[in-house]
Amino acid sequence: MTRANTIRDRILSVILTILSVAWVYPVVMILLNSLKKETAITTGTAFELPSGETFAGLENYVNAIESKGFATAFWYTLVITLTSVALILICCSMCAWYITRVHTWYSRALYFLFVFSMVVPFQMLMFTLSATADRIGSASTIGSIAQRFGLSAPAGLADISLLPLNTPYGICIIYLGFGAGLAVFMFCGFMKSVPIEVEEAAMIDGCGPVRTFFFVVLPILKPTLISVGILETMWLWNDYLLPYLTLDRTKGYMTIPILIQYFRGSYGRVEMGPMMASIMLNVIPIIVVYLLCQKHIIKGVAAGAVKG
C-alpha cells in the first residue's frame, strides 16, 4: 500500500466516523429527551442535555408504562408479531413445498397469485380488508351463529367469536394471508435449489409426505426460515396502518406504533414525555435484538432484497 493510500484511508475513516455519529445522534437525542421533565421538553430545546433542573429520571418511562397503556400495547405487539411469524413460517413453507413439488396448472396459478400480492400496495385493500375483518369477527360470534340456526346461545358464550379477526389473536390470520406473498416467494426460490433426491429417498423408505416435510425438508430450509422470519418480524413489529384499521379499538386493542401515533392525535396537547419514553421503549428491544443477531439480520435482509 502506498503512502497516498494510507492518508486517503485515514481521511475516509474520519469522514465515516463523523457520518456514523450523525447516524446515531437522532436516537441518542430522543433518549436524552426522554429523561427530561415534561415541561422541559419544548420544540426549541430538544438538543439540550438534561440538566439538574430538568432531569426527571425514569419518570416518563414509569408514566408511559403505568398510565398510558404502554404495557398493554407492548404485550399485544409481541403476541401479534410472534404468533404471525410462527404461522407464516410453518404454513407458508408447507405451501411453498407443495407448489414447487406438484406441477399442475393450479400450483402455478397459486404461485403467480402470491407473487402478485407482494406488489399490491396496502391502500388498495385497506377499506375492504378492515370491513371484512369486522364483519367476519362479528358474524362468527357464537351468539350470531346460533341465531342463524334459530337457537339461542348460552349467555356467557354469546359474545365469544370463533374467528375474531379484529382482535390481536385473530389478526394473525390476516397477517398470514397478507404476508404469505413474500414468504412463499422466498421459500419457493430456495426450494428449487434443494435436491429432490433426499426427499425421494425418505419417501421410498416409508416416510409419508407430512413426516418427510417436517423431518427432512424443514431442517434443510433453516437458513431461509431465519431470513423470512427476520423480514416478517421487522415488518410486523413496526406495522401501523393494518392493525390501526383492523383492531377493534373500542376494546382497547393497541400496538406500539398506534400508541405513539395516539399521543399526537387524541389528547389535544401532545404529551411529549411519555411519547419520547414510548419511542425509546419501542427502539430499545429492536437495538438489543439487532446487536445480538446482527449477522443473521443483515444476511436475511440482503437475501430478501436480492430475491425481491
Binding site: 404461522l87 404454513c91 407458508c92 408447507m94 405451501c95 413445498w97 407443495y98 407448489i99 413439488r101 406438484v102 406441477h103 399442475t104 397459486l110 397469485l113 402470491f114 400480492s117 399490491v120 388498495m124 385493500l125 375492504t128 380488508l129 371484512t132 367476519i136 379477526l165 390470520i173 390476516i174 397477517y175 398470514l176 394471508g177 397478507f178 404469505a180 406473498g181 412463499v184 429432490i196 426427499e199 425421494e200 419417501m203 409419508g208 409426505p209 407430512v210 416435510f213
Partner: peptide, 28 residues
C-alpha cells in the same frame, strides 16, 4: 412422489390459501 404429496393438499396448502383468500383475494 408427486401423487403422494398431491393428496395432502388440505394439510399443505389449505391453511395458507384460506388466510390468503380472507387477507388478500377477497378484499382485492
Amino acid at each position: 412422489m408427486e401423487k403422494a404429496i398431491k393428496r395432502f393438499w388440505p394439510v399443505f396448502v389449505l391453511p395458507t390459501f384460506a388466510a390468503f383468500l380472507i387477507g388478500f383475494v377477497w378484499p382485492f
